[in-house]
Amino acid sequence: MTHTAATQGTQESLWSTALRSRDRRVTRQRLGVLAAVEAIPHATAEEISSAAQAELPHITVQSVYVILADLTGIGLVRRIDTPHSPARYETRVGDNHHHAICSGCGRIEDVDCAVGHAPCLTPEWSPGAHRMTIDIAEVVYQGLCEDCRQAATSHP
């Protein structure tokens, strides 16, 4: 067994355990979608569908959407709603990290909390507000990545 096959088998076993712990059956389709999301962080449902279909030719786009919604609902996948783009998905969940989006090429990068903890989860409430428990805060940084910035300065 190659190192890649062993790593894939280990990850598949982790996903299987995670699915069972959330009362979901372990299916080839769910594992295929999870593998695609893991392999292509910040991918759209269409990109995930294409990657999953490479391994499972009979999986439909509709099935991928249904599986993504379910995996998001049970906390195995995070849906990222970015401006001017379809939803994106990732398997990095539970740490309340943020995202930086290049306004030139659309690349998305993960950004850890700037101060080392999650102060954005303890907001300052307006007077009279009905307080709630905050589970996640969506912070989106927008700017130009290094490649787009260099391209912009080299082409006046």
Rank of each mutant, 00 (worst) to 15 (best):
N96H: 05
E55V: 15
V26N: 01
S21T: 10
P127H: 11
G94A: 11
V61H: 14
S13T: 11
E146V: 10
Q62N: 10
D70P: 00
V93Y: 01
Q11L: 15
S49Q: 06
G32K: 02
D81L: 09
V139S: 05
R78W: 03
T44V: 07
S16G: 11
D135T: 13
Y89K: 01
T122L: 15
R149F: 08
G143L: 04
A114I: 07
C113M: 08
T7Q: 14
R28V: 11
I48M: 02
G116D: 02
Q62P: 00
A87L: 03
L71E: 00
L76T: 07
A151T: 12
Q53V: 06
S154V: 10
H155T: 10
T2N: 15
S154A: 14
V61N: 06
A137E: 13
T133F: 06
G104H: 01
C148M: 02
S49M: 05
I59L: 06
E109F: 00
W125T: 07
P57E: 03
A100Y: 10
S21W: 06
V111D: 03
Y89S: 02
V64G: 04
V93K: 04
C145I: 07
V37I: 04
S63N: 11
H98L: 07
E90R: 12
D95A: 14
R24V: 04
